[in-house]
Design a protein around this nucleic acid. Structure first.
Length: 606
RNA sequence: GCGGGCGUAGCUCAGCUGGUUAGAGCGCCGCCCUGUCACGGCGGAGGUCGCGAGUUCAAAUCUCGUCGCUCGCGCCA
């Protein structure tokens, strides 16, 4: 017999009755009845009830083994007596009568419960991640992650993509997020950077003639965390040659749709997959106040600046802002006139908690407009308001007034807040059981910094401007669009991509508009620029956030729930003690002297 | 860098406007129990109330500071 197991803990059935078998696993639960003792033995596959029968010499031994110890048990499979069969367990018809016990790894008292959800905090879970990962939910999530990545590889290969590995130690780039830096021992004072994405490498693979590239690519960004943002994360990174934007969509969309369809009911609730029409960036910002709108929310934003600019409207708070170049945005909430005062008050205090003066509104009921600011809007203006917003009797319209950018953004937040405030089952409540996707297209190439007034790339500097060199030379930078796109789903940005700029002269021009000298371009992107001198194909691609896909499928609010090992919100790993101090010898090797902030020095001395 | 929330037993939490010896559930230890599957019963151990200062006759409770965690803003092409 095998030294550890003949079967897994999920395998034994009636067919195995009377067989002598061996199982290994963790003691999930012990139920000690004095005479007879039940052990639920667990491995990654499942649970099997094992029995230490009355009079067994093993009884005393088992009483001293704590839960979560690893044991190997040998015994005979038996049918459970009639009424004690457990229909909730796949192995519930049988049990293993233990005849021999080997303790492989005894467990100390565990710091939190594995067998049940005891609500333990994240700090504990991360510190003892190996215990946390034993729990059923994490085992499932990690298996989902594994399955999703496997499917990605399968589906990409089926479309003739080749998988690559690109360097982890590479060069720092001046654009985008902060890089994680790695000092070079051999080159004093110089640093490698961990890639924020394999952007330049995949583009150079296109120059090399590899038509279709993909990678399950690790990416690193040294910026502060969020629930959906980590220092290191993985992307399904894709690049293709001789393609248009639509070709990229048509290639990758079936891969993503297929994966979502395959795992849509992972949570136990089936989800539909709906991919909407492309949305232009500007339309998204106006209609949804976000470039990653949650399309399950049916509410839309409209511009009603002209209504509040009318001479007969006397709402001074908005008028003053409009005169300074501001705008008024409105959100129609259907059928809410019967909502209590509390509904409106709650939204108002939500707005105040976000730093706004409040959230003004008009309710149309009993044939007229009501609410705190209705009296400033005469009937004729109210009619115009209804026309623009589509509001009808019984609806309310909420207002946001500010300069255009903050107004759009706050309207987007309000749109979500209003939708969330609606009661379950309301016609405008957030749709359930659906993954709603769309491509956001036509991102602007440049944007002007509000404070400095300077023009900079608004997204990826390697994107092709839609009008090519002609646009760069003749258009106002802010009016130039890029072949730059995102894929969104349920309020998450799942993917970002572009048709790249593969012409060195256009790239030079594009960078010069953003204020980057040719020397900067050559210094920082020289490798790629050189490559473009020797026959570069038109190409483009995108990258999907794998972790966010798994978050959505598993309906987890936090990225840390879909990673085996992960750092906390401050990007520390309490389990491995990273980051950590290094020895003076290591520093010397790297030619580095620390220049610590004063507060830290004091703290360490204390 | 900034803001909100939290910090009491190994874990999760309760402890109201200050007032005897700071509680519960789970876990742990001991005893009892032949069929449970979140087994059950009895008993027990376990606390610098994050830390520091202040107010007070009296502080887990009020005030200030500080540290930690978490969510968000900034940031993240």
């Amino acid at each position: 017999m095998h030294p550890y197991r003949t079967h897994t803990c999920a395998e034994l059935r009636q067919d195995h009755v009377d067989q002598s078998v061996k199982l290994s696993g963790w003691i999930h639960r012990k139920r000690d009845h004095g005479g007879v003792l039940f052990i639920d033995l667990r491995d990654t596959h499942g649970l099997t009830q094992c029995v230490v029968d009355e009079g067994s010499p093993l009884l005393a031994q088992f009483e001293n083994i704590r839960t979560e110890s690893v044991v190997t048990v040998t015994g005979t499979v038996r049918t459970r007596p009639g009424e004690t069969q457990n229909a909730n367990m796949p192995t519930g018809d049988i049990e293993l009568y233990i005849e021999a016990l080997d303790v492989q790894g005894a467990a100390e008292v565990i710091p939190f419960q594995v067998a049940e959800d005891d609500g333990v905090g994240e700090e504990m879970r991360l510190k003892y991640r190996y215990l946390d990962l034993r729990r059923e939910k994490m085992q499932k999530n990690i298996r989902l992650r594994n399955d999703v990545i496997f499917e990605m590889r399968k589906r990409m290969r089926a479309q003739d993509f080749q998988e690559f590995q690109t360097p982890i130690l590479t060069a720092s780039s001046p654009e985008g997020a902060r890089d994680y830096l790695v000092p070079s021992r051999l080159h004093a004072g110089k640093f490698y950077a961990l890639p924020q994405a394999p952007q330049q490498f995949k583009q150079m693979l296109m120059v090399s003639g590899f038509d279709k590239y993909f990678q399950i690519a690790p990416c690193f960004r040294d910026e502060d965390g969020r629930a959906d943002r980590l220092a290191e994360f993985y992307q399904l990174d894709i690049e293709m040659s001789f393609v248009t934007q639509e070709d990229v969509f048509n290639t990758i969309q079936p891969v993503i749709e297929g994966i979502f369809e395959q795992f849509n009911d992972f949570t136990g609730t089936p989800h539909k997959i709906e991919w909407g029409e492309h949305i232009r960036y500007e339309d998204a910002m106006l209609k949804y106040g976000s470039d990653k709108p949650d399309l399950r929310n049916p509410l839309e934003i409209v511009d009603v600046t002209e209504v509040f600019a009318r001479d007969d409207v006397e709402f001074k708070a908005f008028k003053g802002t409009i005169e300074k170049g501001g705008v008024v945005r409105a959100i129609r909430a259907p059928k809410v006139s019967d909502q209590s005062r509390k509904f409106f008050d709650k939204l108002n205090s939500w707005a105040q908690s976000e730093g706004a003066p409040g959230l003004g509104y008009v309710v149309f009921k009993d044939g007229e407009g009501a609410g705190p600011i209705a009296k400033f809007i005469p009937a004729a203006a109210q009619e115009e308001l209804k026309k623009i917003s589509g509001a009808e009797e019984g609806d309310a319209v909420f207002f946001i007034c500010n300069k255009e950018k903050p107004a759009a953004k706050f309207a987007g937040l309000a749109r979500d807040a209003i939708c969330s405030a609606l009661p379950e089952g309301h016609e405008a409540a957030r749709e359930k059981g659906v993954f709603k996707f769309a491509w956001i297209i036509d991102f602007p190439m440049y944007e002007r910094d509000e404070h400095t007034g300077e023009v900079d790339f608004s997204h990826n500097p390697f994107s092709m401007p839609q009008g090519g060199m002609d646009d760069l030379e003749n258009k106002d930078p802010e009016a130039i669009y890029a072949f730059q796109y995102d894929a969104i789903c349920n309020g998450f940005e799942l993917c970002s991509g572009a048709i790249r700029n593969h012409k060195a002269d256009i790239m030079e021009k594009a960078f010069s508009i953003a204020g980057y000298d040719k020397s900067v371009l050559e210094d920082k992107f020289g490798g790629m620029l050189n490559a473009f001198q020797y026959g570069a194909p038109p190409h483009g691609g995108c990258a999907f956030g794998i972790d966010r896909i798994i978050m959505l499928l598993a309906d987890e609010p936090n990225l840390r729930e879909v990673y085996a090992f992960v750092m906390n919100g401050q990007y520390e790993d309490q389990m491995m003690s990273a980051p950590s101090d290094i020895t003076p010898e290591q520093l010397k090797d790297l030619h580095i002297k620390l220049d610590m902030p004063k507060a830290k020095i004091k703290e360490q001395a204390a």
